[in-house]
Design a binder for these strands. Structure first.
Ligand code: SF4
Ligand code: SF4
Lengths: 147, 147
DNA sequence: AAAATTTTGGATAAAAAAGATCCAATTAGA
DNA sequence: TCTAATTGGATCTTTTTTATCCAAAATTTT
């Protein structure tokens, strides 16, 4: 019951792109800054591009950049783009996979757990994940409990 | 991000034992009633026994039974006995595993997600998971939202 | 147009985890 | 003692994860 490395790497990539604003960042830079194996990163970026989360520019001066505003992109989208839709147990996504699913109460717990997890991840936006070097001087604003 | 089959099987076993009250149930019976490969079930039962959740009786008339009252056993205990402590990302259990963990905000989200998940699973007891054939006639009681 | 740089996409592969299965030895009731 | 039940260790297969390699394609610069 853990996320994949690829998912964590994908989130790192997206957070890095968010901190770089709209710039196109070459793979090598993300790889070294974020400690992600370069070739693996290429595959992850392709997944995220197909999911409509980032844009890939090929050729010289190519690289990656966010396709949408970091305010619009949730952690849930990133995670599910890389892991597939979250289901903590097979029966949640496919009730026919278990002959007990219609009466089983554990089934309901896994369903509830999934909801809770997705709600949390869905409430976090890329903007909430950017690391600011120092806190804003004249602002008390906190967009959520995670920053 | 899914539980293992072994974990689901383990929960099925525990729920079955709970429905049988204090009886010692042979492995073959649990295996066929709960659709669990018998030899695999043996391994799972050994794990749960080491975790103090059930008692194994060897020899003729042997089998499995709960070691504690189903009221005292939570789903979290069962799941963690089989999966190990729940951490949705390596950095949650071992911050040294990632050089970003001290500043990374995603880290905090995975921590919060873990808390939420463990709280939910910890709130469900084996008694809440027993399947009653028909609802009690003269009782409105619901021990929680899962029954 | 040629050179330089950067990604693609498909193949491949090593390692780890998951999901069992086998069986000789052991245990304990009858 | 006979029989029925589990143990514990080894083994095995399959799937998933985590990459890596490289020729081809794309795009900018010279
Ligand atoms: S036993 Fe219950 S929780 Fe397990 S797979 Fe079947 S329906 Fe789902
Ligand atoms: S990048 Fe953040 S979330 Fe990912 S492993 Fe490191 S600390 Fe954890």
């Amino acid at each position: 019951m853990k996320i994949n490395r690829a998912t964590d790497y994908g989130v790192r990539l997206m957070v890095y792109l968010a901190t770089e604003g709209g710039k196109t960042v070459p793979r090598a830079e993300v790889s070294s800054a974020m400690d992600i194996p370069s070739e693996f990163l290429a595959k992850i970026a392709q997944h995220l591009a197909r999911a409509g989360l980032l844009e890939i520019k090929q050729g010289r001066m190519g690289g990656y950049r966010l396709k949408r505003s970091p305010e619009e992109i949730t952690l849930l989208e990133i995670v599910e783009a890389l892991e597939g839709e979250i289901f903590l147990n097979i029966c949640v996504g496919d009730p026919k996979a278990c002959r007990f699913s219609s009466t089983c109460k554990v089934h309901l717990v896994w369903k509830a757990a999934r909801e809770g997890l997705r709600d949390l991840l869905g409430s976090i936006r890329l903007t909430n994940l950017i690391i600011k070097e120092r806190p804003l001087q004249n602002s008390q604003e906190r967009c959520c409990k995670y920053n």
